[in-house]
Design a protein around this nucleic acid. Structure first.
Length: 660
RNA sequence: GGCGGCGUAGCUCAGUGGUAGAGCAGGAGAAUCAUAAUCUCUUGGCCGGGGGUUCAAGUCCCUCCGCCGCUACCA
């Protein structure tokens, strides 16, 4: 609880060293990469603002079998392949305004040297040994399987026969560090976060810990860093990759620099690679006689439209496209606001659109816009002088709230609770909007004798927005900096602020403001309203009447009709299907179960307005896959080519009721 | 299977043994500075089921149901 997080270096400037994992270049960057990196960037920017000398490291992991495979699939040598992927990552980070201090590639000389130095030291400390391992090997897949994984002598992945081979390798005596590691985790409650992950790691360490194989025979895998004392082997990629955290700050090459930054304050990682960091990395550091990082934070994963993201589903979110569609700042904001950091979250266009419109456009953007307009209209376009005589209790409350952000936002940020930090910030946004209504500057402006009061109100709004910009900067750097510029406060937020910059009253009266375009123009939804459920039925068009009369009457028997299983369904969720104008994905509760249905009604109905509506579902229609999504039924609506009205019920009915 | 977590308003979730809450969505109204953005009021809960401890249980215990996570060296 009482975190011993004060660094011993506080004599000089406080330092902050934060890392992302280095990303494996077997695939293009997706939302998961963007998420970790944006979170790290937010923390780095936040710490810089608060005066920390900050080192923010990211990079790419380029060795190993999968990279070799990905390269040869494209007919490239691994280095060329890696070079191309690296360009994609670097471009994305630029687009997402990532302020990393360095970018490490594991194929760089500065890194390889240190990996070899690490291996030498491990060898010298006698924590390495060679042993041969025997297992089932699938030649085409180039991978081993355990005895219980092999299915009747076949590879469980590709079904081809496996062969028994034995191989000699270098092993790291990881098992020897189990108890020390357990003690460390128990004694440092903040070492592994969130707490649930910490418990998982402790649970994992209940069982015996085995040693770690840290080499690969060169004959089988050439794409790696050679062992310095045995040219027949290359380094296991995880060991190679983890060392980046110390190779860049100068381990083995620059003592002073290394002492300045190590131990790292935070390694941010995805939950999928927590064990690797918590166990392999920690024990390796112990073997090297180095301190462990102060915090290892494992964040959650994103699903997309409620489904797991995967290449085969084709629903992988491209961060470039999202930044282009919503703007980098809005994308950053959404990722950190939507979900408590550490938990899984769901990414969907309706969700980001909802937050964008209500929080960014309506709450913040509009507050900024109305304030600047009023300063232009009622104060000649300059920040007015807040005469103490005009100050009321209401104003002081807002000042107090604004000042309190230093503490409240600070403590949430220190706990990696980005969403809560944003909630604290929004408490001020909301207060300011209420403040506008209660002070009603447009009324004050009608009477010249209210001049002093009017100036006080307008100044309080402008200064509140300046303070908001300070706290928003880590999350939305471009927007925040634009706010300060338009408010006439010419201070770069890219660096440490002066203490008074966080305090009230920094904005100088007399400075001109410069109102620009809306910070976040509203995103207009495709369709606003299906009137009421009880709306009059749409009058049939002439064409459809014609068609009806032209149609030959062909009868079906009552038995044929009975084959139809029509049910009352209640729409539980509804959302647009990406890339399809007309389609909505619905989940429909039919009492006994919930069906996923693809319906071509998006041009008529906005998804949100459908939720809760009762519809008629053809429950025994053969499932079909539409746009890659399985549709388990059909809902009924009037209209032939275009949807005119959804079939629904006048009285409330239980979902699942038979329709005849 | 083992260990751990979760189940609260239509949705997402907060809730230290003491009168069930927030945001969004829904409903009504006010205002006109603003991107029709804002503000005020408001509808809405067998707190998963059952049992127990207690003066008192969303909260503690047991049990059942449902969902989720971890279970390494991918050699």
């Amino acid at each position: 609880m009482k975190a011993s997080s004060k660094k011993a270096t506080s004599r000089k400037r406080k330092t902050f060293y934060i890392t992302t994992p280095i990303y494996y270049v077997n695939d293009v960057p997706h939302i998961g990469h963007a998420y970790t990196t944006i979170a790290a960037d937010v923390l780095a920017r936040y710490k810089r603002l608060r005066g920390y000398d900050t080192f923010f490291l990211t990079g790419t992991d380029e060795h190993g079998q999968k990279v070799q495979q990905a390269a040869s699939k494209k007919g490239l040598d691994p280095q060329t392949h890696a070079d191309r992927m690296v360009a994609a990552f670097k471009e994305l980070w630029k687009r997402l305004t990532i302020s990393n201090s360095d970018f490490v590639r594991t194929t760089e000389e500065r890194h390889k040297r240190v990996v070899q130095e690490v291996l030498r030291r491990l060898q010298e400390t006698h924590v390495l040994y060679t042993a041969s391992y025997e297992g089932w090997y699938c030649l085409p897949d180039e991978r081993f399987w355990a005895d219980d994984e092999v299915v009747e002598g076949k590879c469980p992945e590709c079904g081809r026969p496996v062969e028994r081979i034995s191989e000699s390798n270098y092993f790291f005596k990881m098992s020897a560090y189990r108890d020390r590691l357990r003690r460390h985790i128990r004694r440092h409650s903040g070492f592994i976060q969130p707490e649930s992950r910490r418990n998982e790691v402790l649970g994992f360490l209940e069982r015996p810990l085995e040693d770690l194989c840290i080499s690969r025979p060169r004959a089988r895998l050439a794409w790696g860093i050679p062992f310095p004392f045995d040219p027949d082997y290359v380094t296991y990629v995880w060991v190679d990759a983890l060392v980046n955290y110390i190779s860049v700050p100068g381990y083995g090459t620059d003592k002073r620099r290394f002492a300045k930054w190590w131990p790292a304050d935070v390694h941010l990682v995805g939950k999928d690679i927590l064990t690797t960091h918590a166990v392999y990395w920690s024990t390796l550091l112990m073997a090297l006689g180095l301190d462990l990082p102060k915090t290892l934070f494992a964040h959650g994963w994103w699903t997309v439209d409620g489904e797991k993201m995967s290449k085969s589903r084709g629903n992988v979110v491209d961060p470039n496209a999202m930044a282009a569609e919503y703007g980098t700042d809005a994308f950053r904001y959404f990722l950190l606001r939507e979900v408590p950091f550490g938990q899984d979250g769901d990414f969907s266009k309706p969700a980001i659109t909802a937050r964008y419109n209500s929080e960014l456009a309506n709450d913040l953007g509009n507050l900024f816009s109305r304030t600047l307009t009023m300063i232009e209209r009622y104060a000649g376009g300059v920040v007015p002088e807040p005469h103490p005589k005009g100050v009321k209790a209401e104003d002081r409350r807002m000042v107090e709230l604004a000042k309190s952000l230093y503490r409240t936002v600070g403590s949430e940020m220190d706990r990696f609770a980005f969403h809560r930090a944003l909630r604290e910030i929004w408490a001020l946004v909301d207060f300011a909007n209420r403040y506008v209504e209660r002070s009603a500057p447009w009324d004050l402006a009608k009477e010249p004798r209210n001049r002093v009061r009017l100036d006080v109100v307008l100044y309080h709004l402008a200064e509140t927005l300046r303070i908001l910009a300070v706290y928003l900067f880590p999350f939305m750097p471009t927007t925040a900096q634009r706010m300060t510029t338009e408010l006439g406060w010419a201070t770069s937020l890219e660096q440490a602020l002066k203490p008074q910059d966080f305090q009230w009253g920094r904005l100088k009266p007399g400075r001109p403001v410069q109102k620009g375009k809306p910070l976040f123009p509203r995103i207009e939804l495709p369709q606003t309203l299906p009137e009421r459920e009880t709306a009059a039925p749409a009058t049939p068009s002439k064409e459809s009447v014609m068609e009806l009369t032209r149609t030959e009457p062909s009868f079906i028997s009552i038995d044929e009709f009975r084959k139809l299983d029509l049910r009352v369904g209640r729409i539980v969720t509804a959302e647009k299907i990406t890339g399809a104008d007309k389609l909505l994905k619905l989940s429909v509760d039919i009492g006994t179960e919930t069906r996923q249905v693809v319906a071509g009604i998006a041009t008529k109905y906005a998804p949100d307005l459908l939720i809760g509506k009762s519809v008629v579902l053809v429950a025994n229609l053969k499932p079909a896959v539409i746009r890659g999504i399985e549709s388990q039924g059909m809902i009924l609506a009037a209209g032939d080519k275009t949807v005119e009205a959804l079939a629904t019920f006048i009285e409330p009915v239980e979902p699942g009721t038979r329709v005849k």
